[in-house]
Design a protein around this nucleic acid. Structure first.
Lengths: 199, 199
DNA sequence: TTACTTTTGCTAACACCGTTAGGTTATTGA
DNA sequence: TCAATAACCTAACGGTGTTAGCAAAAGTAA
């Protein structure tokens, strides 16, 4: 008898409804706006029903994180397969990564734990500017030293900062299983490469 | 008459008390544990008093963000001033940045909006591993192509990812005032440099 | 000293939130 | 028809940030 199947199907449907509704909210107002109560209201069930499908709120967000990794994986794979030359492949993947992140901001935030309130936008401008000033000076000098008038110091500063911030945030959020030692080696390697490219 | 001065002093004292207590909480349990009500209890005042000194909870966190930028600025400046050669200075600043971030995780998180719940640690392992696999293959091939048996592909993969993630998260959290065009140029520049270093 | 004004601080509430205990109703199998 | 089970809900617990409105204290001027 298909009774249990029908039940399973109905349960699955509710589950999908939860995810669908939740994603709608996240997409529209960001992950911070997600609320169990609002989901319940939207799917026209009482609150505890949500907990029959997900252990807690985090589990719902986790669902999107996984979805994000799958989607990004697909994009990267596709980009890579457009080329056979490895360096072209790397370039293509980098572009695809960039594209994915900017077109799926909410997903990316959930995947890597980015974007709490913080000092966003222009609230720390003054303090931030000093930080730029300090960092950019040696870069300008190094470029002068090497007669690299073709290179924009501001651009190079951004590159340096990206490398640093990227390493740090991967380290802090614990996304990568890499240990301390490896990360420090990566840093040294990246900086060495960076300086080499200024010459 | 020094009455207004004394009053201002006392008010200042309460304000400092709020910041001190708040920082204690953030330091111990992370910024997510900060609660207006708990601060009020700790300083032995009622809740609305907090709002005489700070517009809202975010304003308190902002205070720490600013403090973080100042502190990091000091560290970077100091590191830079230990050397005269620009490339040494860059290296020193990179190390200082790294040190600061790892020794002041909470501050760094507040400064750059990192570290919500997310897919942290090992919850997305499976999805994450596929992502590594896809990315690392072309790097290995490129290294082989250039007979670079001295270089660890895993390390190089981490470097690439850091650059990408760094750029993206700076872009997403809006920390930098850089516009879209500049950021894309930075990306291209960084990737070009990265590939060059694989050769 | 008294009357008035300002500052200070509090209570109590509003409107949310995630989570869960416990009971009710409907559905199913014997 | 009856017991078991699954589905579902109400209502609460213990939190959160924020604010309106009032009482008391402190300072000022007569």
């Amino acid at each position: 008898m298909g009774i249990v199947e029908r039940r399973a199907r109905q349960k699955e449907e509710v589950r999908n409804n939860i995810i669908y509704t939740a994603w709608d909210m996240v997409k529209k107002d960001g992950w911070q706006a997600l609320s169990i109560r609002k989901i319940a209201e939207a799917i026209e069930y009482s609150v505890p029903v949500i907990y029959d499908h997900f252990e807690n709120k985090e589990a719902i967000l986790l669902e999107f994180g996984k979805k994000g990794f799958r989607k990004m994986g697909d994009k990267l794979e596709f980009a890579r397969n457009q080329y056979t030359n490895p360096s072209d492949q790397i370039r293509a993947m980098a572009d695809a990564y960039w594209e994915f992140a900017l077109n799926n901001v909410q997903l990316y935030q959930l995947m890597f734990g980015i974007g709490m309130a913080s000092c966003e936008s222009e609230k720390c401008t003054c303090e931030y500017n000093r930080f730029i000033d300090i960092m950019i000076e040696p870069i300008e000098n190094e470029l002068k030293l090497n007669n690299r008038t073709d290179v924009n110091a501001c651009l190079k500063y951004h590159t340096l900062w990206s490398v640093l911030h990227g390493l740090v945030s991967i380290k802090i959020t614990g996304t990568s299983p890499a240990d301390d030692e490896l990360t420090k080696v990566v840093l040294d390697d990246a900086i060495a490469g960076y300086i080499k490219n200024l010459k």
